[in-house]
Amino acid sequence: MSTSTHTPAAPGGSRIAAVAGYRPSRLVGNEELGARLGVSGPWIERRVGVRSRHYAAPEESVVDMAAAAAGKVLAAAGLAAHDIDLLVLATCSLASPMPNGAAGVAARLGHPVMAAFDVNAACAGFCYALGVADGLVRAGTSGRVLVVGAEKMTDWVDPDDVDTATVFADGAGAAVVVASDRAEIHPVVWGSDGDRADLVAIPDRYSSVTMQGQAVYRWVTTSLAPVAADACRRAGIPPADLKGFVTHQANLRMIEHLATALGATGAAVGRDIVESGNTSAASVPLALSRLIGTGDVRTGDPVLLLGFGAGLSYAAQVVRSP
């Protein structure tokens, strides 16, 4: 058995070398979904901001999608799987609690002996995993970390529940975190409100996602702008100087409210929810990769990332775009 050999001494900071996303091939529009649920396509869009979403094939797993996104981001970074020290998979939708999904992704990439573990902070998971990766790289524990957010939410959604079936979807996004002479991933601001953890939950292993949407909306719109502002303060970047604003893609009205409340007046706002729905831990990297792909965010631009969801967990950090 071999192990990684390229862990450096503790650097000055870390940076994101590349971001990539994977969306399953099946595209489900509002008209198709609304016909089954007894609502109109325009009603769905007005309510949650979604026009379409991607569904994984029945045989396509969280690990499959995570490996697809991981392969794409490694190619974008010019790296091979054997260049990676650690793989962190953010997910809350594995079919089984054991084995962890990260080890399976590492095996799919052809490097099964790398360190690999899962993070479950639901929709905040990618930002949590990115905070962990940044800390490990800066500490010199890991030289290069592959961070993946992947979800198959359709496995856990009641297809006849209009509150959840209209918004949740499947997909994966990934980033490579590497050492840097300067900090391009700024300090994470994270926390939770466990007293209200049941607002978004899967009550038991045989049930589907339940969500108290109005209560979650009130929590997001009253509590998280200060978290985002604190992340900007710790980065030394005023909100007005942000070039990108990427939150968890839960609801379009939430996203736009947060951007206005923060005062991110010059930022391109991630609205991937319109085409991809709510992909939980995959939503932040998918939205960031879309902004980069369209040219709305360029290399070196400061971007605020903000994940939030079940737990009620949240995490925010300012990063420099790769």
Rank of each mutant, 00 (worst) to 15 (best):
G171F: 13
G194F: 05
P159V: 14
D163I: 07
A57G: 14
H257A: 12
R36H: 13
S276Y: 15
V274T: 11
R218C: 08
P203R: 01
L79N: 10
H6L: 14
T294L: 10
G270L: 01
R46C: 06
T91E: 10
L199D: 11
L27P: 07
D195S: 14
V119R: 06
T299H: 15
H111Q: 14
A133G: 06
V167G: 07
L86P: 12
G236F: 00
E45F: 06
T166M: 08
G78M: 13
G277T: 03
P203F: 00
R144E: 04
P285N: 10
R271M: 02
A150T: 06
V147M: 06
V88S: 05
A169H: 07
A122M: 12
V88T: 04
A80W: 08
L33P: 12
D181Y: 02
A179I: 13
A231C: 05
V73L: 09
D118L: 02
S40F: 02
G173V: 02
D170L: 11
I185V: 15
V167P: 01
G49P: 09
H186K: 11
A133T: 10
R108C: 05
P187K: 04
S4R: 10
A315M: 13
V73C: 08
T3C: 09
W219E: 14
A69H: 06
A106D: 03
V189W: 01
L286D: 04
V318G: 06
T279S: 15
A267M: 12
L130P: 00
P97L: 01
Y217K: 07
T166F: 01
A70H: 04
Y217W: 12
D181E: 14
G104K: 02
P58G: 03
D195E: 15
A259L: 00
S207K: 06
V297L: 10
E59S: 07
M65C: 11
P11F: 00
L37F: 04
G125C: 02
G13S: 09
D161I: 09
S61Q: 00
A124R: 07
G266L: 04
V73A: 09
W156S: 12
H54G: 05
A76V: 11
T247Y: 01
E32T: 14
A175Y: 00
T222Q: 14
V220T: 15
D64E: 10
P159I: 12
V88R: 03
E45V: 06
R47C: 11
S40T: 15
G263Y: 06
G300T: 01
V200Q: 10
G300D: 07
D193Y: 06
Q317F: 04
M1A: 14
V269Y: 04
R138F: 02
D85W: 08
S313N: 14
V178S: 13
A56T: 13
A264I: 09
Q317R: 08
I237S: 05
